[in-house]
Design a protein around this nucleic acid. Sequence first.
DNA 1: GTGGAAGCTGAATCCCCTT
DNA 2: AAAGGGGATTCAGCTTCCA
Lengths: 376, 376
Amino acid sequence: MNLVLPVREAPARARKIAPAADPSGRIIAGDCIEEMRKLPAKSIDLIFADPPYNLQLGGDLFRPEGGRVDAVDDAWDRFDSLAAYDRFTRAWLTEARRVLKDDGAIWVIGSYHNIYKVGAALQDLDYWILNDIVWRKSNPMPNFRGTRFTNAHETLLWCAKSQDAKYTFNYQAMKALNDDLQMRSDWVLPICSGSERLKDGLGHKAHPTQKPESLLYRVLLACTKPGDVVLDPFFGTGTTGAVAKRLGRQWIGIEREPAYRQAAAERIAATLPLDESAMETIPDKRSQPRVAFGLLVENGMVPAGTVLVDAKRRWKAAVRADGSLSCGPHAGSIHKVGAGLNKAPSCNGWTFWHVEKRGRLVPLDALRQEHLAGLA
Amino acid sequence: MNLVLPVREAPARARKIAPAADPSGRIIAGDCIEEMRKLPAKSIDLIFADPPYNLQLGGDLFRPEGGRVDAVDDAWDRFDSLAAYDRFTRAWLTEARRVLKDDGAIWVIGSYHNIYKVGAALQDLDYWILNDIVWRKSNPMPNFRGTRFTNAHETLLWCAKSQDAKYTFNYQAMKALNDDLQMRSDWVLPICSGSERLKDGLGHKAHPTQKPESLLYRVLLACTKPGDVVLDPFFGTGTTGAVAKRLGRQWIGIEREPAYRQAAAERIAATLPLDESAMETIPDKRSQPRVAFGLLVENGMVPAGTVLVDAKRRWKAAVRADGSLSCGPHAGSIHKVGAGLNKAPSCNGWTFWHVEKRGRLVPLDALRQEHLAGLA
DNA sequence: GTGGAAGCTGAATCCCCTT
DNA sequence: AAAGGGGATTCAGCTTCCA
């Protein structure tokens, strides 16, 4: 397979370095359960695992504009039954436990399709859950049919080997990474796209579920020390290896698919250690969070039934349970109804609509600021 | 226990109203497994459950299954507790499944201590997960010892009774509540505090894990219709009942602790339902009556011979006497011709095709709405 | 070169009634 | 019961192309 590497890297130089000779780590070819059996017991400091999710997708899914969704339909994600997935999960988690040092830790990422089975198995195998972490995607795929909530997050489980294990947690590093606030259990990070996303020679994505380096960066920075050995039993295109190398950690990747191994080897060979650019890619989201008007309805600041008026009291509109307004024939969001009444293409409902308080008109925007102040 | 109610309520008046006489719902005293057994099968539209998960304090909860916790040593105790918690979870989820209508749904909230066991049990019992929702707390308790990430979220599981069930989801209402964007699976809501938090006579919180009404508001608005019956088998101080009453839903709460029942009864008695008009939400198009395009041709709204165009005026099509379109080689319904021209598998002809009126393009959908309004 | 419009894409358990 | 067809449905970020 001829791989096109990201622009910032140097393919020619990368190919000259034999992947197996990378001093910081190695890629093992084969099934992770069998290959973990060959590793010495209690030799690994941290395991990061991104196992198949067992998505169980149905037929084709089309976007509203007509395009077809490029679904994950690879053979490696198909299992005969829920019970078969359970057996697979417990088998690899058992081997993972054997190779893990007593004070080591494991991270597993998944979605609602599999993470509950994984979590239950971890607990049954006497792992001790330290946190569940929510990766909130800033740019998830929408729900095209309007049938459910946008599936906008994935879940990571962080476990020690036992309740009393002395696991590694670089608290101050995490706090520093988060503008001197304690790092929370919900992480907002974009999905892997753009130049970071590995492509094959035809411009198709090299792996259907490549994880962003920012995610691994945070995990490895939080839970390992320089020189620690990180094992990824579902290596894929080697995000774990690339970030481990960059951060000066040792790494071992296990992968069955030759094409993924090849992509990972070239990628990691072209990665330079101690490059702090990944640090910069983690967004410091200090901008004000967006507030939906519906939130003020839910939390009782502007209860359903409230009557809103414009600044000149020309229009009145009633707030409904879902945060929409109704005013004669007009119904919809604060912005849409304002635009409809004004016969304008758009309208800022936050400044257009007011609540009457003790004889004075208070714009919705003031209530929004009040709400934001309450959160701070 | 003498409970002090929130400021906005009127204790004296509340006590005069016999709780059992609330027309919108009732509180059942007792263990939820036993009491659910007495409810008729397939009678409940929605279950919201906030089960206990503190294994240390909850030992006697597991008596219905007969297993008594015998703390020989820590390891045995923990194993026995985990297994007992599993049995307890599967027991109440089984009864819940029995009382649920085939097209009903269940929500369960939990933290990493129990939600993985709950999720695995739900899947084993053939519930079908629709989403996992992350309640991202805007003001969580910090991790004082600096040993883990701040545990800043809880998880809710939303499941249908089977894979092919026709569950209720008010997509448009959720979109309205979120400023005209699809509602995502991560919800940012503050924890229950301030005047909303019920206190006992000594100023202590009446219940250790009282949920915010905003959380229930969103769940019930998304997944029920007015008049639906909502069951909460772990009623506590009745947040589910209060919000159900406010939104015009019927409710049933099951609670073992007399003090919680008393607090819930007083709280709900003092809650007023919303005005009917305020309870309205943006309707889903799917629930509106069908209009055949031919009807608009028959009644002269879009006479045969009218030329339709798409929004970008790239295509033109003539309306024929039977309401079909013809456009070059394409002929058929407004949808079929639109799909053919777009080379798409399908197309919504109502929004694709437009009529020119005084230089402006009016989508057929607007004419359909006009027609429907004329009938009303 | 630059700015804007238009197109493409991401771990997705994605419709429902009539014949 | 399977098939056919009406018709409901998308957000953010990056890339490409054209003016």
